[in-house]
Design a protein around this nucleic acid. Structure first.
Lengths: 246, 246
DNA sequence: CGCGATTTGTGCACGCCTTCACAAGCGCCT
DNA sequence: AGGCGCTTGTGAAGGCGTGCACAAATCGCG
């Protein structure tokens, strides 16, 4: 996908730590490192080696070191990485120290679950508003939060300073909702509806399609079946840990 | 991630269409093409140009052509691709013509929603069994299906020939569930628990972490904020459609 | 029948990402 | 103080994926 160039111009040596120009692949792995680090911290570890952290995060240790080196030198040679320091650093980079406000549009089957998903709150996100277009759902209380009508979105977004919106509507409604979110000042959208959204260039969109993941697994099932059906290499029990895709 | 080499040895020209050796990136896009094609078919289109289909799927047209060329030549120069033919071909490659049986373990907040998610059934997957370790939940009927105890997994998996399992449990239980699934003969796992699973090399695992997506968006929010705060390029309304990551 | 318009399929170059291998640096033990 | 083992950080190589640009092929029309 297109990804506009970002990062700081070389000239400015700002007092605010200049924003590092991280590879997209690295960014996608930082949350995983963070989760592993939290786990280690709870277990009482003060430092981790790249080998240990890589194992906990399920990646190659060389890749992990290169990823972390992009953030700066937060490790000590011969010792490893300071867990607490690294947690702070990654949370800062990811902007998780802001306790970001998120709104969710579409309180159907999936939206209902997302509204109550504990994993959001535990990682620094507060779902502060629920919206739906269905008048019958407005007023329903989910996880201690009342569902409001989609028409109130702009009002609420302004007073809560919501920058991230989650779309969990049917695909037919998703584009209209995205337009509303953009109009309300939202600049990041997480889209669970199986359709492409068109948004202004300053708005980021990430898409999660639950069925797509199953389809990819189905492909590999199909592949495995067609291989074992052939005479050649049936029971290949050897080989290293397999993990599909990223 | 490690990805064991697959595909057919050059010698065998099997009667069963030899399984093409598709790049992983292509496989991940096929479901998106399929969705766009279904949409076009419902609209009555008989053929599509690569340009048109690429737009509907949100990708570059050259990329789409290269992806489809890996499946073989199913297009006609000067005309485009036959929609129905392409749908059949992609569904065959993805193994969706089997109406695959899926079981779901963990009927909590998220599992409940997944059990009723219409997007699975509409794309060729049947959720045929629900499991949970909590005796209080056993017997509960969701979407016309009764929740069974996790202990019955091996029994049910055998008689329903389930090859794909979905884990929607808390992370503490996920590894144990994965072991049970593997023991029951499941060879593909979709993991919604935020943790790494270790499985035998012949088992495929894909992980979906809902919070990770938000964290990536949070990073870009942080980046955008730190850029607009700086003197340089504030209102950059120009530029092409932005879409973060894949 | 021939020609032009259109669209696929693909060779090629470029850039990103991964992986290896190793020098540089740090702490500990003697 | 010196040496040794361990771990980080990084240069370089290789592989994969993307996008351009164009040749090949097909259809429709005169």
């Amino acid at each position: 996908m297109s990804q506009q160039r970002h990062g700081s111009t070389p000239g400015e040596a700002g007092d605010v730590p200049a924003f590092p120009d991280l590879p997209e692949a690295t960014i996608a792995r930082l949350p995983e490192y963070l989760r592993a680090l939290h786990h280690l911290a709870e277990a009482g570890a003060e430092t981790v080696s790249s080998e240990g952290l890589a194992a906990a995060a399920g990646v190659n240790s060389a890749k992990l070191r290169k990823d972390l080196s992009h953030l700066g030198s937060y490790g000590t040679r011969g010792v490893g990485y300071d867990v607490a320091l690294l947690v702070d650093q990654i949370e800062y980079i990811l902007g998780l120290d802001k306790n970001r406000a998120v709104c969710l549009v579409g309180v159907g089957n999936l939206g209902h679950a997302l509204a109550g998903y504990a994993g959001f709150a535990s990682r620094g996100f507060r779902v502060v508003a629920l919206f739906d277009a269905d008048r019958k759902k407005v007023g329903e209380v989910i996880n201690g939060m009342a569902v409001r009508h989609i028409g109130d979105l702009e009002l609420v977004a302004a007073e809560e300073s919501i920058a991230i919106g989650v779309i969990a509507t049917p695909p037919t409604a998703a584009q209209a909702v995205a337009d509303l979110l953009v109009a309300a000042g939202v600049t990041s959208i997480l889209n669970f509806a199986p359709c492409v959204l068109s948004v202004p260039p300053n708005v980021d969109v990430r898409k999660v399609d639950l069925a797509v993941e199953l389809q990819i697994l189905s492909f590999h099932e199909h592949r495995k079946a067609s291989l074992t059906a052939l005479p050649g290499g049936a029971g290949d029990a050897a080989g290293d840990q397999e993990a599909v895709g990223s």
